[in-house]
């Protein structure tokens, strides 16, 4: 399903980001351009089979989010390749495609299109999204008048309306008030247990232990350990 082969990701870090031609020219002439190479991922290889739930753990800056971005196609690896078969729904950050001048209804279609849903699908699932988000009549109000809880509820409802073949999650999203948190968590668990291939990053070891088959432990860009969930979690928590 997902095949990651020898993926390495290099970033160039300059002391200050050169954003203008003048700066570039000056720095170039005075030979001040010093790139520092930074390898966010180093030679990562693994395979995920259909229906597997894979957890990714590691400290901040270990390369977890970079890995998810490489797999979802946002970043292209410097070396190596990552191949996914099936439609991916990346839930890296919810609601990034929202336009705050449009109404909730218009945003369902806009954001849905950005996530790659078809028009027919969105028309069929519109009622479901509306119901799940509990927005009611606010759906016809421009997004700039929404509270942040309402925004997150709408975003979550749009993102999870599909049953994707591959789900990529950066931290389990529990949004809104206690009631909605309960509901959203239940929805996430439902998605994960429904035969979907899941890749998810979490700092909550309990969650990882209870849900994952396999866990990958990343440490400064390298795979430190990969294997059975319990073993890796035990090793990590020491």
């Amino acid at each position: 399903m997902i095949n990651v082969e020898n993926v390495s990701m290099r970033f160039f870090i300059t002391q200050d980001k050169i954003q203008s031609l003048k700066e570039y020219a000056i720095k170039f002439l005075t030979r001040q351009i010093k790139y520092q190479e930074f390898w966010a991922l180093k030679d990562i290889s693994f395979e995920v089979n259909k229906g597997e739930v894979v957890g990714i753990i590691g400290r901040n800056g270990a390369g977890k989010s970079t890995l998810l971005k490489v797999i979802s196609g946002i970043l292209r690896p410097t070396i190596g390749s990552s191949v996914c078969k099936g439609n991916i729904v990346p839930m890296l950050e919810l609601g990034s495609g929202f336009d705050h001048d449009l109404t909730g209804r218009e945003n369902i279609f806009l954001n849905g299109a950005i996530l790659g849903y078809t028009k027919k699908f969105l028309e069929d699932k519109y009622e479901e999204i509306l119901e799940f988000s509990e927005l009611g009549r606010f759906i016809e109000v421009p997004l700039r008048n929404y509270s942040s809880g309402m925004l997150m509820r709408l975003a979550f409802s749009i993102a999870t309306v599909v049953n994707p073949e591959i789900l990529i999650v950066d931290e389990i999203l529990a949004v809104g008030d206690a009631n909605f948190q309960e509901k959203s968590k239940a929805r996430m668990l439902e998605l994960m247990s429904g035969g979907t291939t899941v890749l998810f990053v979490s700092h909550n070891l309990e969650e990882i232990r209870s849900m994952c088959n396999t866990v990958i432990w990343l440490d400064s860009g390298l795979i430190k350990m990969i294997g059975d969930a319990k073993e890796v979690c035990n090793a990590y928590s020491i």
Binding site: I74, I88, L92, S96, G97, I114, L115
Partner: peptide, 9 residues
């Protein structure tokens, strides 16, 4: 920018 770094299209 916020879209490009978060969603693939």
């Amino acid at each position: 920018a916020n879209l490009i770094t978060k969603v693939y299209m």
